[in-house]
Simulated assay, not measured.
Amino acid sequence: MYTLLVKTHVTLALLSFISFIIRAWWGFSHSALVENKFALVIHQILTVFMLISAGTLCIMLDQFPFVNGWLTEKLSLFIVYAFSTMLLFQLTLKRRIRVLLMIVTCGIWLTIFTIGKAHTPLLFG
Rank of each mutant, 00 (worst) to 15 (best):
L40I: 07
V41I: 09
T56R: 02
H43F: 00
E35M: 13
I79V: 13
F38I: 11
N68R: 08
Q63M: 12
Q63R: 09
V48N: 03
M60T: 09
I45L: 13
I52E: 03
W70T: 08
A39P: 00
A39R: 03
L33W: 06
S76M: 11
V67A: 07
F66W: 13
K37H: 08
W70L: 10
S29E: 10
S31M: 01
I52G: 15
L75R: 02
Q63I: 04
L75D: 08
I79S: 07
F64M: 03
L51K: 04
L33D: 11
Q63W: 00
Y81A: 09
Y81M: 10
F66E: 13
I79G: 09
F83V: 15
L71E: 04
H30I: 02
S53T: 10
C58I: 06
I52M: 13
L57H: 01
L51H: 01
P65L: 05
L71R: 05
A82Q: 07
T56E: 12
S53M: 07
F64W: 14
A32F: 09
S53V: 02
T56Y: 11
T47K: 04
N36I: 00
W70R: 06
T72W: 06
L33P: 00
T72Q: 11
V67C: 00
A39T: 08
L33N: 11
L77Y: 02
A54P: 02
L40S: 15
A39K: 06
E73Y: 03
Y81D: 08
I59H: 12
Y81C: 08
I79A: 15
L40G: 13
H30F: 10
L51R: 04
L40P: 03
P65A: 09
Q44F: 04
L51V: 12
T56W: 01
I79M: 14
V41S: 07
G55R: 04
G55W: 10
S53E: 04
S29Y: 01
I52K: 03
I59G: 06
L61A: 11
L57M: 09
Y81W: 10
F28V: 05
F64S: 10
A32K: 15
S29W: 00
V80I: 14
T47Q: 07
E73D: 08
I59Q: 04
T56M: 11
L57W: 05
Q63S: 12
L57P: 01
V80P: 03
L77W: 05
M60A: 13
S31P: 05
L40D: 13
T72C: 06
W70E: 09
S29D: 06
Q44W: 08
L33S: 12
I59E: 08
N36H: 08
C58N: 07
K74F: 07
L75Q: 04
T56S: 13
S76Q: 04
L77I: 10
S76L: 14
T47S: 12
S76A: 15
L77D: 08
V48P: 01
Y81F: 15
F83W: 11
E73C: 10
V67I: 15
T47N: 09
K74E: 14
V67E: 15
V48I: 15
A82T: 13
L77S: 08
S53W: 03
L46S: 01
K74G: 12
F28Y: 05
A32N: 11
F28A: 02
Q63H: 03
T72D: 06
F49G: 05
F83N: 11
Q44T: 05
M50I: 08
Q63P: 03
A39W: 08
Q63V: 06
F49Y: 10
Q63N: 08
G55M: 07
I59N: 11
F38C: 07
L33G: 03
A82K: 01
F64I: 06
